[in-house]
Design a protein around this nucleic acid. Sequence first.
DNA 1: CAAGCCAGGTTTAACGTTACACACTCGGGC
DNA 2: GCCCGAGTGTGTAACGTTAAACCTGGCTTG
Lengths: 323, 323
Amino acid sequence: MTVSNVVRGAPNVSDATRQRVLETIERIGYVPNSSARNLRAGRSGAVSFAIPTIDNSYFAELARLLLDEAAALGWTVLIEQTKGDGELERRALAGYGPTPTDGLVFFPQALVADEVAAQAAGRPLVLLGEQGDRGPGDVVIVDNEGAAREAVAHLLALGRRRVAAVGESPAAGTENSHRRIAGYRAALEEAGVPFEPALAPRVDHYTRAEGAEAVGALLDGPAPPDAVFAFNDMLAVGAVHAARERGLRVPEDLAVVGFDGTDEARYCNPPLTTVAPDKRGIAREAMRLLNERITRGDDLPYRTVRMGHELLVRGSSLAAAGS
Amino acid sequence: MTVSNVVRGAPNVSDATRQRVLETIERIGYVPNSSARNLRAGRSGAVSFAIPTIDNSYFAELARLLLDEAAALGWTVLIEQTKGDGELERRALAGYGPTPTDGLVFFPQALVADEVAAQAAGRPLVLLGEQGDRGPGDVVIVDNEGAAREAVAHLLALGRRRVAAVGESPAAGTENSHRRIAGYRAALEEAGVPFEPALAPRVDHYTRAEGAEAVGALLDGPAPPDAVFAFNDMLAVGAVHAARERGLRVPEDLAVVGFDGTDEARYCNPPLTTVAPDKRGIAREAMRLLNERITRGDDLPYRTVRMGHELLVRGSSLAAAGS
DNA sequence: CAAGCCAGGTTTAACGTTACACACTCGGGC
DNA sequence: GCCCGAGTGTGTAACGTTAAACCTGGCTTG
């Protein structure tokens, strides 16, 4: 018990005793047993970060920041890959698996808000991305609709009139993509450009390969686009790749704008214009909200935090010399 | 106890009882408490994956595969970012932190083999990358020297004579980079090209920014290179960026070869030639070795597994039309 | 028909920690 | 001289799980 008091820095331990204990700890190499602590405390000290996959530039960068924020608050983060699969998402929410966590930061893809609410069942939860009217937990978002509108307006301002939007997804929980489509349509309308469903192909996964495939199909089609607004940077990189493969120039023949503000976009060739959400802010707020919800309990009302974004204009969408 | 038997599928439970227990579990929503299990078992069911940072394409892709392999074997993976910092590496090895793990897969950077051995102190350990003569644990490697030699020989075969090597690092534990430098020098020697220290600049971190900086400095120097062998794909992407910034063409003016075989390299512009280690194999073997060492104890001798690699030749190092 | 065995189920104890109650000592204060 | 309280330190019990020992009837076996 005295050892416990010393280790935890509890009062009522004399300096002499404290010293003696610390020396002994050092000598015999005592390390507190976390399982016992967790059992006793009813906590695990770990939280989950449930995302589709970690080898997505955006989630990798976000994970880096989130791990740092978590460490600062004394939490360990456990990354769970849901692959956008409903069953895996359900499992992550319910907290199955050999390692228990006290809550999670979740980026839903397959599940809609109601299902998320049902599965989480009172577990402390912070959602990333838009969630319909009210989320089943705290929510951290960016203004997807506004950001998309800006991005597309930027392309239209360059004189482009056949702007494709790549990233609408058949997955149910991708409210983010619906908002971005809405922003896209709003920008088109504002410029008096009719919406053409064929220019908004669906993709299953936000990968470079699917970006290249989707944009390649558009470029090979009867009425190719002259610009692409991709819903993430990996899709955008795929779009650039598809254009190059066909001997088209970026941005002259095809202007491209991405989303996520990843480092990869910055070092692309040409450097990629992209909507950069405040990733550090998102990571910080997500951990802050989760920490509060876990420690302060569930009398807190659900909160929504909106983080800023910025359109980083780069070479992939500069006005072409001749146009 | 009977519940425990049912949950674990132990024998000596009648079908009737089993049924009754399962129904009750369902009804009251019983979930086994992992902390108690871990306390009882003396295990945590989790392993660490200690790497510099997760927002490095290679580690992100490797993490994805490792998480999958681990899940298949019933392990949870905890990613720890060491930032290449000695103190953080020591902590990861010793298993500090609020969440205990039963072992780890470790990519050392700051620490040398002896320090690793001292810190790990008997914890089940699998090392990624070369470790001098004998590792302080199981080791999974690729033939760094051979791979580097192939890559550089490929550049020399294109007629390049001023091949830079970017990636030698001042960090102590980067045995990988020493081997790659060795392969680089071997290839030069074989082709009768003298080694020029100025063409092998040091970098602190394997990031796109440092790749661009290092190669930019070389290109701005008195005797610029006509080819670059970068020690990872991010450095290579930075190299391409630096060349483009200066109006140079890749591969005509500067051929570039990377290392890691990341998806990013494939979709680069131009697509990046890269040495692709068998990442899936590395992930699989690493988890297999770690699993065996944890479950079978330490009477096992240290093992070294060498995985294959492949030089993927792409646009960034094709023979220039005119050369 | 007693002994033995077996399937099915229960009790005990222990894993390491810590909240809480309890015990002891030593200076004052009345 | 007695009590009080502050400052220290110790004992107890409980967190949820499970290996191992232990019951308990019914059934086989010699």
